[in-house]
């Protein structure tokens, strides 16, 4: 790459960058309702967390999390952090080593590709306004 003219190098870098961005954010194949939460993860060097709605609704009715535990109906809108979780709030109400596996299994939740933005995957709004979402 060293001997190439600068525009070509620039283009190659741009391509690589564009591909990373595109492939990490623009792939609408995941399960309907999967929530990606990336409020603090990227900045902290962790993979963003993914909440699979489908898995949880097989086991719990919406009310358990959205009324009893106080999860708002808004992806990324709950300001969840690890301190709250180990203190038994939000995910920590169940993910405490008794009802469900505990917080030491970091990579089971923090499993998204780095850089994946907060979103409800496959949601209608995501399909309506993909360009707006990509700008985030």
């Amino acid at each position: 790459m060293i001997g190439r003219p600068p525009w070509q190098r620039w283009f190659a870098i741009l391509l690589a960058f564009a591909a990373i961005v595109a492939f990490d954010t623009d792939d609408a194949r995941a399960e309907y309702g999967d929530v990606v939460i990336n409020n603090y993860s990227d900045a902290a060097g962790m993979r963003p967390a993914i909440f699979p709605h489908w898995f949880h609704r097989v086991r719990f009715r919406c009310k358990v999390c959205h009324a009893d535990l106080g999860f708002k109906f808004k992806a990324g809108g709950n300001e969840i952090n690890m301190v709250k979780i180990i203190d038994g709030q939000f995910c920590g109400a169940c993910h405490n080593g008794e009802l469900a596996w505990s917080v030491e299994n970091c990579n089971l939740c923090h499993s998204a590709k780095p850089g994946t933005p907060t979103q409800v995957h496959e949601s209608t709004i995501q399909k309506l306004a993909p360009a707006a979402l990509q700008k985030k």
Binding site: D27, A28, R29, A30, E31, D34, V36, R47, I50, P52, W54, F55, V58, N105, C106, N107, L108, C109, H110, S111, A112, K113, P114, T116, H121
Partner: peptide, 27 residues
Amino acid sequence: RNPPPAEDGIHDPVNDGTVALMAPLAA
């Protein structure tokens, strides 16, 4: 439709936890 986590586009396939997750179709 309903791909397993490692192929679903948002899970990181090189993350060790990803392969431990259940695939939707299994459920």
